[in-house]
Amino acid sequence: MERNESSRNFILLGFSDRPKLEMVLFFTNMVFYFLAVMGNSTIIFLSVVDPRLHRPMYFFLCNLSLLDLCYTSSSIPQMLVNLWGPQKTITYMGCVIQLFAFLSVGGIECILLSVMAYDRFVAVCKPLHYMTIMHPQLCLRLAACAWLTGIANSILMSPLTMSLKRCGHHHINHFVCEMPAIIHISCVDTRRVEGLVFFLAIPIVLVPLAMILVSYGYIIATVLRIRSAAGRHKAFNTCSSHMIVVSLFYSTIIYMYMQPGNVASQDQGKFLTLFYCLVTPTLNPFIYTLRNKDVKGAMWKVLGKDQSLLDAIGH
């Protein structure tokens, strides 16, 4: 049975019950995917080529952009193929790869966002010691910790999820092989797996979230002590982009993975998954760059434009 199940393709039902919606989603998602790839690739490119962006904040932002590329590229091309034609299949190995990518990238991003919050805490609360504290070796260690933890979580949970007996069920009511959807088609008691998911969510999701909240608690207290309005505005701009990204990411990821076997894997879960694996990665580059003079300056430099033109646009 297990060998037979591991050799069968899965059917990703996706939005097949709404054929009119499928064409709308195809063209909309294709545009979003193009913007996500272009936006995140641009941030990575600029962070590498421009010396002004060789700082901890942009090092972590480069990592976030790489994660967003992994999120979208592991699921959206397959989704576009399934939306365009009548075939909704994905191979067993393709499903395993998608599951592994989603679990690892999700875990990495949770921890990376907490690392970025710590970076902002040091920048606002200890500005004179910023470069001493956030030295390159520490940044590399923090990033490596995030990547290794997320990958380790996926190495544990991916085989466990795929090993659940499905009794011949291979129709997944989703557009991607995500853990809640795969758990939902299992024909055995999944409470142990769901319990393990909830347990692992504590150090991977909730602890980083707590660290983010503590960091921003200190940041807000520090900002309120700044007497000048210009100083408060500058400190707020330093952190506002990260706060928006954290809100977008955590609001969906907690709902999905703190109740993996619940109704979140049905229609509501499809749109939530679409939001955090496509919409959020598309928005992140714009959120981080729209009010960031360093990134805009690097962009204009690459395009060969004069910096004075950038300043004029800024005003």
Rank of each mutant, 00 (worst) to 15 (best):
A101M: 13
Y255M: 11
I151L: 11
Q307D: 14
Y288F: 15
F236V: 14
S7P: 01
I151H: 01
F249T: 03
C110A: 13
Q137F: 12
I219G: 08
I202S: 03
G94W: 04
M23Y: 10
K88C: 02
R18N: 07
L206S: 05
L103T: 06
S6W: 12
M57G: 01
F26W: 00
G107D: 03
I185D: 04
E178R: 11
L209I: 10
P208A: 04
G94L: 07
I155W: 12
L83Y: 05
S154Q: 02
V245Y: 06
K296N: 14
V105T: 09
F271S: 06
L248T: 02
I151K: 00
I185V: 15
S228V: 05
V188S: 14
I133M: 05
T238W: 08
P56V: 09
M299D: 00
G94K: 02
M57I: 07
F26K: 00
M299V: 05
M1W: 06
F15Y: 12
L113T: 03
I43R: 05
D17A: 14
G304F: 13
H135F: 09
I253D: 02
T273H: 13
V81M: 02
P208V: 07
H135N: 13
Y92Q: 11
F236Y: 12
L103K: 01
I172P: 04
F10L: 15
R18V: 03
P180L: 09
D311N: 10
M1H: 10
I244T: 10
C125M: 07
N292W: 13
A123W: 04
L278N: 06
C110S: 13
S73A: 10
L53V: 09
R55L: 12
I44C: 15
D119Q: 15
Q78K: 02
E178L: 14
I244R: 04
T149K: 00
Y33A: 13
F60W: 13
L303F: 15
T289G: 10
L309T: 10
M1G: 12
L113A: 08
L160N: 03
V96D: 03
F199I: 09
G39Q: 12
L248M: 14
D119E: 15
F275I: 03
K165V: 07
L309D: 11
N9S: 12
P86K: 02
L83T: 02
S215R: 05
D17V: 00
G94S: 03
I172W: 03
I226G: 02
L21F: 13
A298F: 07
N292M: 14
L142Q: 06
T91P: 01
P260Q: 05
R291Q: 08
G85N: 10
I182F: 10
P127F: 06
L164D: 03
S65Q: 07
K88S: 00
L113H: 07
W147C: 09
F271G: 05
F121G: 01
G39V: 05
L310P: 06
H129Q: 12
L224D: 02
W300I: 08
V246A: 11
L21M: 09
G195E: 10
L196V: 11
K296H: 10
E2D: 14
S163H: 12
T273R: 04
F10Y: 15
F45Q: 03
W147D: 02
V193Y: 12
R120K: 15
I204A: 04
T289H: 07
F249P: 01
L164P: 06
S73K: 00
I172H: 03
Q307E: 14
G107F: 06
K234Q: 14
